[in-house]
């Protein structure tokens, strides 16, 4: 996997956990979960963002604002953001180390 993609995936996962703590925090606290580390997690997200190429990060931020999720999994050769078909050559060895984008919606593609 492209090293930048690995960082973007982790950043998106951390941000999903932050969003959940903020949006479902009361419900999670009622279940007994302690969310005191929210600021620490935000710092971790910032640190991860700082490791990403600024051009890639800006693109990720733009997509997140527009779609909610910038990186989406490809399942059954479909972009799960817009359901466009992803040509088989996208997963060839030649392209393994490229940051791939959906030609239809522009989302960053991830093969789980």
């Amino acid at each position: 996997m492209h090293p930048e993609l690995q960082k973007l995936v982790l950043l998106q996962d951390i941000e999903a956990n932050i969003r959940e703590a903020e949006e479902q925090g009361e419900e999670l606290k009622e279940l007994g979960f302690n969310l005191d580390g929210l600021n620490q997690l935000k710092e971790r997200a910032e640190a991860m963002a700082g490791e990403i190429n600024p051009r890639h990060l800006a693109y990720y931020r733009r997509l997140t604002r527009r779609f909610g999720h910038a990186v989406v999994p490809v399942i059954d050769n479909l972009c799960t953001g817009c359901f466009a078909n992803i040509p088989a050559q996208f997963v060839s060895a030649t392209n393994e180390n490229l940051l791939q984008k959906c030609e239809s919606c522009g989302r960053i593609l991830y093969w789980p």
Partner: peptide, 23 residues
Amino acid sequence: SREALGSTAVGPGVAFPHGRTLA
């Protein structure tokens, strides 16, 4: 990273590690 938010060991003798991931 989820554990950094707060330990998920909230039940008596029970933990519920959880979260969302693209993986």
